[in-house]
Amino acid sequence: MSMLVFFFVPAVIFLTVVAPIWLILHYWTRSRQNKGLSDEERQTLEDALSVAERLEKRVATLETILDAEHPNWRTAREDDYRRGGS
Score class of each variant (00 low, 15 high):
23 L>E: 04
58 R>Y: 00
25 L>G: 13
19 A>L: 14
68 A>E: 13
21 I>V: 05
14 F>W: 06
66 L>N: 06
1 M>W: 03
21 I>N: 07
21 I>M: 07
40 E>V: 15
68 A>S: 12
32 R>Y: 06
21 I>A: 06
29 T>V: 10
39 D>M: 14
70 H>M: 11
7 F>S: 09
33 Q>L: 12
62 L>P: 01
47 D>Y: 04
55 L>G: 02
53 E>V: 05
75 T>H: 09
82 R>I: 08
50 S>W: 01
79 D>G: 03
14 F>P: 01
42 R>K: 15
6 F>Y: 10
49 L>P: 01
19 A>W: 08
23 L>R: 14
66 L>Y: 03
3 M>E: 14
41 E>F: 03
36 G>F: 07
17 V>D: 05
1 M>A: 13
16 T>G: 10
8 F>D: 07
21 I>G: 05
70 H>C: 09
68 A>C: 05
52 A>L: 03
70 H>D: 10
8 F>N: 08
75 T>L: 10
31 S>P: 03
83 R>M: 10
11 A>N: 06
19 A>V: 05
62 L>R: 05
69 E>H: 12
12 V>W: 02
47 D>T: 11
39 D>G: 15
75 T>S: 14
16 T>I: 04
6 F>C: 08
78 E>L: 15
6 F>P: 02
73 W>V: 02
49 L>H: 05
12 V>T: 06
20 P>R: 01
23 L>Q: 09
57 K>G: 00
59 V>G: 00
47 D>F: 02
57 K>R: 11
57 K>I: 00
22 W>R: 08
56 E>M: 00
61 T>I: 04
49 L>V: 03
70 H>K: 13
62 L>Y: 03
57 K>M: 00
32 R>Q: 14
46 E>M: 06
30 R>K: 10
6 F>K: 13
71 P>N: 03
22 W>I: 03
61 T>V: 05
7 F>Y: 11
25 L>Q: 11
57 K>T: 00
63 E>R: 09
21 I>C: 06
85 G>F: 15
53 E>R: 11
24 I>T: 05
31 S>H: 09
34 N>S: 12
86 S>F: 13
18 V>L: 09
20 P>Y: 00
42 R>S: 15
74 R>Q: 14
77 R>V: 09
12 V>A: 10
25 L>P: 07
52 A>V: 02
75 T>N: 10
81 Y>D: 15
68 A>N: 11
54 R>N: 06
85 G>V: 14
22 W>A: 05
18 V>A: 06
79 D>K: 14
75 T>E: 15
9 V>F: 02
70 H>S: 11
8 F>T: 07
43 Q>P: 09
20 P>K: 01
38 S>V: 13
32 R>I: 07
38 S>A: 14
27 Y>W: 15
67 D>E: 12
9 V>Q: 01
17 V>Q: 05
48 A>H: 02
8 F>L: 11
57 K>E: 00
7 F>L: 13
43 Q>R: 15
27 Y>G: 06
40 E>W: 06
28 W>L: 11
